[in-house]
């Protein structure tokens, strides 16, 4: 890692950061260095999904990723989700289903669902898709509207 510089593409923008310590989590880089506070910290132990971002198009847990181990990757956070057609669909589905209460879990759910639908479109059966969303927890327990949003976002995809 030349000169300790970290190169990422964040929401489509090339980003170069100096002096990121090796132990820093991508979650902290995104929130505190880049000021993108949409990505949430729930548990910091991989169990809640609130910190979900896309790395090269796939959902990952930014609390369990060393920022510098993501060197060279394209990161999409909730702030950039609208530039992805699937992401925008998912965001709109959450909005129209009213799939949020306090909203803390919402960015993680939107990113996780975007990742899943980008991977497989509608080819994943609905029950499997919902099972695959199980890595995200909603402490307000607003699951029925989240399920409705997931179903709506999946409809009409190829």
């Amino acid at each position: 890692m030349s000169g300790g510089r970290l190169r990422l593409s964040v929401n489509g923008r090339p980003t170069e950061l100096a002096d990121v310590p090796p132990e820093e989590r991508l979650l902290d880089t995104v929130r505190w260095r880049l000021g993108l506070k949409g990505t949430k910290e729930g548990c910091r132990t991989g169990e809640c999904g609130a910190c979900t971002v896309l790395r090269d198009g796939h959902a990952v847990l930014s609390c369990l990723l060393l920022a510098r181990d993501a060197d060279g990757a394209a990161i999409t956070t909730i702030e950039g989700v609208r530039s992805d057609p699937v992401g925008e669909r998912v965001r709109a589905a959450f909005e129209s289903a009213g799939a949020l209460q306090c909203g803390y879990c919402t960015p993680g759910f939107v990113m996780a669902l975007t990742g899943l639908l980008r991977e497989a479109g509608r080819s994943t059966p609905l029950d499997e898709l919902l099972e695959d969303l199980g890595g995200n927890l909603c402490r307000c327990t607003g699951y029925s509207t989240i399920v409705r949003a997931a179903r709506a976002a999946r409809e009409g995809l190829p």
């Binding site: 991989g46 979900t52 790395r55 796939h58 959902a59 847990l61 369990l64 996780a112 990742g115 890595g135």
Partner: peptide, 9 residues
Amino acid sequence: VGSVALRHQ
């Protein structure tokens, strides 16, 4: 094992 996001890592 864990969740989909965990399994991507």
